[in-house]
Design a protein around this nucleic acid. Structure first.
Length: 552
RNA sequence: UGGGCGAUAGUAUAAGGGCAGUACUACUGAUUUUGGUUCAGUUCGUGGGGGUUCGAAUCCUCCUCGCCCAACCA
């Protein structure tokens, strides 16, 4: 009997369901901080968390971890909600916020203080750092560690009402200054920040730290499996310490390895830097590894989900090849994209034996992968544009395209033979002169001629203009962050964006946002959000695979 | 350096004492009115030493390497 392959988290869940640890419940959560846009790494977490609850008949909450008002905003909240839904997931019930629990959290902090398990510390951050010790030597107690609960309770209240300036003091859990886990050396759990919060406004002068908010939020929501990334492994000890000492419901934290992609960076802080320093045009720049950037680039939710699925879930550090993402995008787009003709780098071809002024409408399949997409008519005439690299005066041995004396099929039209070449003073080819084979028309070819190559074209008289944005990887190094002492921006690819002006077939002037197009033999494209009726702009989503290894 | 986590083809991910499998990549070939797609095939792997065992990627042991932790960030 074939056994379905489970990742290690699914194994934990199935074991929990067998033992009845959570009564068979599976309740996960996706807990972003609204301090930036989501990236493909978050997509892994989203697919994991929502995937788990779908698979085991559970629920997934969307909860914003909004405990640091200085860095968070509603703009980010809105973008995150949009990205999660675009990816194809719907959270359980209302959107939740850690800030919903600020009152409860405050009471729990009071309980800790009351129980002698937390204290107000007036040390400066420098003093605290000094007393913390280091990796090899134990820390020592703060002089404020033994203040009485009553006095601490009073001080905490005064912190809350705004009696002290930012950073004047903080609330620390009383754990163990000698712990080998640095996070257990009396971690700060509340700090003074008289900042405006995107949801609670000016109600609070103090805000809980991540460690004091996350586990309790999980607990309040009845989360069963609290899935997070590896860097939180050392936090688990304190996560559990709090739940035990607060005597509240205990979810289980499980850590997995975050997704990394080669030739890019996957850190909100670094991405924010690229945005703020204008190395990209915004969070949704098509070169960004953000979900919004990929959406604008033409990547589909299906392809992203498939990518995440293929990447797998484990605990070892990884850097996924960009090629896998591109494979998933092509695989999806191949099924959906409408085939169109666009000439990216045009030269003119004159079909000398074709009547001047004559126009024929050529039938063209919209998508050979899906007959239901039907066909359209493409105008053909005496003068057409073809791709500059579809012609070579002195071709290498296995060149299937056009050269003097050679023949090619014009896609969905006639076979032509090259008779002559016109050049400018510099020797550049400016025009190719051909004759067409009259009885070789596509769909009714009685010429009996077999040609190796088929090339695309656009009628000069009917062509429209479009701006095409061609993207390459954002960085030239597979791991821009992996060089100690070298700023990651030194590896930025100066050619990450190339703008070209193409000749496109008339049907493309009706291109719509959100529709995938394949510019035949070249690449997948989509209309950019900046396009207007006067100016067509297309983003190259991903190139077609190219196994031609000839010259170049 | 203390503690924690991890190590299987180029990249990911299975094999849970019994034939090291799958996908992507790369390369071959076939088909093709897209040098796309599709199809067929090839190359490529258990970090190192010792041990247990009929048998080890798997168990034990020593070593090596990588990542994380000393924010009033998350």
């Amino acid at each position: 009997m074939e056994h379905e392959i489970l990742n290690f988290i699914e194994e934990i869940i199935e074991k929990d369901n067998e033992t009845g640890k959570f009564g068979g419940r599976v309740h996960t959560r996706f807990p972003p901080e609204p301090n930036g846009y989501l990236h493909i790494g978050h997509a892994k977490s989203i697919c994991l968390n929502f995937g788990l609850s779908q698979k085991y008949g559970g629920k997934t909450n969307l909860r914003f971890d909004d405990t640091n008002p200085e860095k968070e905003s509603d703009e980010y909240v809105q973008s995150i909600k949009r990205d999660v839904q675009w990816l194809g997931f719907q959270w359980n019930g209302d959107v939740l916020y850690a800030s919903d629990y600020f009152d409860q959290l405050y009471q729990w902090a009071q309980k800790l203080i009351h129980d002698g398990k937390a204290y107000i510390d007036f040390s400066t951050s420098e003093e605290m750092a000094a007393l913390k010790g280091n990796l090899t030597t134990a820390g020592s107690d703060s002089p404020y560690r033994n203040t009485s609960p009553a006095e601490n309770l009073d001080l905490f209240e005064r912190m809350k009402v705004g009696e002290f300036p930012d950073g004047h003091c903080c609330l620390r859990a009383k754990v163990d200054m000698a712990s080998s886990n640095m996070l257990m050396r009396d971690p700060v759990i509340y700090r003074i920040k008289r900042a405006h919060h995107h949801r609670t406004g000016d109600k609070w002068n103090i805000y809980p730290m991540y460690d004091f908010a996350h586990g309790q939020s999980d607990s309040i929501e009845g989360i069963t499996h609290s899935v997070c990334t590896l860097e939180f492994v050392p936090h688990r000890e304190f996560y559990e310490w709090l739940l035990v000492n607060l005597e509240i419901y205990r979810p289980q934290q499980i850590e997995f390895a975050r997704l990394n992609l080669d030739y890019t960076v996957m850190s909100k802080r670094k991405l924010l830097q690229l945005v703020e320093e204008k190395h990209v045009t915004g969070w949704d720049d098509p070169r960004m590894p953000t979900i919004s950037g990929m959406r604008r680039r033409g990547y589909t939710p299906e392809s992203l989900r498939e990518f995440v699925k293929r990447v797998g879930v484990a605990k070892r550090d990884n850097i996924i090849e960009f090629g896998l993402l591109e494979f998933c995008v092509r695989e999806d787009l191949n099924k959906k994209a409408l085939r169109m003709m666009a000439v990216l780098d045009p030269i003119k071809m004159v079909i000398t034996n074709y009547p001047e002024g004559q126009v024929e409408e050529m039938k063209f399949d919209n998508n050979p992968e899906n007959e239901a997409d039907g066909s359209r008519l493409v105008p053909f005439s005496r003068e057409i544009y073809i791709e500059r690299d579809d012609f070579m005066e002195n071709p290498p041995k296995k060149y299937f395209r056009l050269f003097p004396g050679g023949m090619v099929r014009l896609k969905s039209a006639y076979i032509v033979r090259c008779d002559d070449v016109l050049k400018d003073d510099a020797g550049n080819v400016t025009e190719v002169h051909c004759t067409y084979i009259e009885n070789s028309r596509s769909g009714n070819d009685q010429s009996g001629i077999h040609v190796k190559g088929t090339i695309h074209w656009v009628s000069v008289a009917h062509a429209a203009d479009a701006e095409l944005r061609i993207y390459e990887r954002l960085f030239t190094d597979p791991n821009p962050l992996g060089h100690e002492g070298v700023d990651f921006k030194t590896f930025m690819n100066p050619n990450s964006l190339t703008t070209i002006h193409a000749k496109i077939e008339p049907a493309l002037t009706a291109a719509e946002l959100g529709v995938a197009y394949q510019f035949i033999r070249k690449a997948y494209f989509c209309l950019d959000t900046e396009a207007t009726t006067d100016k067509l702009i297309f983003n190259q989503t991903v190139g077609l695979k190219d196994s031609f290894k000839g010259s170049k």
